[in-house]
């Protein structure tokens, strides 16, 4: 499937969807969204690239091996539970930092990023493997 129009649009969509996926991940805690949906959208963005330009160029675009993404995601999710284990003696009890201006930062963000990466990497491996067979 080599079409210049599709290929050019795919690049645009790739960046747009990747940005949207990160936005979905970020807003998840207060608005609809979160790591799971974010990861799905991110996987979609790369899948479009793979569909348009083939798997090698999509791999080149994200550089990291999808299975490694899964691993990093799992590690992040586990690590995000450690502060709770130390401070509260309870694994995965999330800890929060509150700033004077009302801005809050919690370990939930790290956990959700882990979910995002696992889903992203997981679907990506599926997509890559299946499309590799085709081309």
């Amino acid at each position: 499937m080599s079409s210049i129009i599709f290929s050019a649009m795919a690049r645009l969509f790739f960046w747009a969807m990747l940005a949207v996926s990160i936005f979905i991940l970020y807003r998840g805690h207060d608005e609809p969204g979160g790591g799971f949906v974010g990861g799905l959208v991110a996987a979609c963005s790369v899948a479009i690239l793979a569909l348009a330009d083939g798997v090698p160029s999509a791999r080149g675009m994200i550089r990291v091996h999808p299975v490694i993404l899964v691993g990093i995601g799992l590690v992040l999710a586990i690590v995000s539970g450690l502060p709770g284990l130390v401070l509260d003696a309870s694994f995965l009890t999330h800890q929060w930092l509150e700033f004077p201006n009302g801005f809050k930062l919690g370990t939930t963000m790290i956990f959700d990023l882990g979910v995002y990466l696992v889903v992203f990497g997981g679907f990506l491996s599926l997509v890559f493997r299946l499309y590799e067979e085709v081309s």
């Binding site: 805690h29 608005e31 956990f111 979910v115």
Partner: peptide, 20 residues
């Protein structure tokens, strides 16, 4: 859990171990 989105809070905080 400092979150407005209950669904997401359940996933990443209240039932985080399940999600893991």
């Amino acid at each position: 859990a400092y979150g407005h989105n209950v669904v997401n809070v359940v996933i990443v905080d209240f039932r985080a171990l399940d999600t893991l």
